[in-house]
Design a protein around this nucleic acid. Structure first.
Lengths: 153, 153
DNA sequence: ATGCTTGCAAACGCTTTGCATTTGA
DNA sequence: TCAAATGCAAAGCGTTTGCAAGCAT
């Protein structure tokens, strides 16, 4: 991602947050700003723990509860998407400026890559449709070893 | 599943457990037998909580810890497979006499259906391969509304 | 008799919640 | 001003673990 992309994404995310807050009579706070900046500056798929550390660099003594509450808010505002991989804890990825995608996860180093495959998407819809299901969302995760970890082991 | 299938599965599962235990110097206990019977008698995708209730019918005052330990043992013995859907808690499905499959889950009633699609499997391998990943296992879950719940809502 | 198993309760890790206090509009 | 937001600590939830007592071999 280029610096301009990042700047655009930040601007758009801030705009969405502002509108979401105004629309609901909620308030803009320094904590929310700090969490948003930390979230967008981090890699995709940050955990709350990682986010807390990052936020504390800018804003001493922010509570984990606040980070959780912020992220919940961002999800509602469409700024963040929640993901739960095999480890169980929640990770967040940007919800603006990203297309739908699935994940490839290295069990050794934890690396997470994204991919997208229209054929799989279509087949999923066909399978669901043939059983009368309407799909709200799906989860497709491939777990294994990335090239580097495969070599080491 | 017919009665004979069930009987066959039960027999095979017991044999596997026995051999697993002997092989490791572990012991056969009434609790392990009771949990195995309850597990195989239950629907696929039972939670530990459901399993505890069922086991208690046969064996009063069995601890949840024991059920957790039994299921861990059964997974090691290849008798059970662990699944974690959106709710977070562990569910188990039979590991003997079942083919690999993915899941279709109704968000309203919790119904879980199984499906299998060779084309999707192949595409997954291609995607992983093209990035140098070797896949150990995957997770494909389609969440939505089953025909019945779609009608009601 | 030995040491694997059990059941209980306590500990766990992550997330949510209650509440007094602070803060933004 | 005054409801919304924060920070802390406590509670929640499903799961795991330590330990003394029980039981299979």
């Amino acid at each position: 991602m280029t610096g301009e992309d990042r700047a655009t994404r930040l601007r758009e995310a801030k705009a969405r947050l502002r509108s979401h807050l105004e629309h609901r009579g909620l308030r803009s706070t320094r904590q929310r700003d700090a969490v948003l900046e930390a979230f967008l500056a981090a890699d995709a798929h940050v955990s709350v723990e990682e986010l807390c550390e990052r936020v504390r660099d800018a804003h001493r003594s922010i509570g984990a509860a606040t980070v959780y509450r912020c992220m919940g808010l961002f999800v509602q505002a469409g700024i963040a998407k929640e993901r739960r991989f095999h480890e169980g804890r929640i990770r967040y990825e940007p919800g603006v400026g990203t297309e739908h995608h699935d994940h490839l996860i290295c069990l050794a180093c934890g690396d997470i890559q994204e991919f997208e495959n229209p054929t799989i998407e279509r087949l999923q819809d066909e399978i669901a449709g043939s059983r009368g299901f309407s799909v709200t969302y799906h989860r497709l995760e491939l777990y294994g070893l990335c090239p580097r970890c495969k070599k080491i082991s």
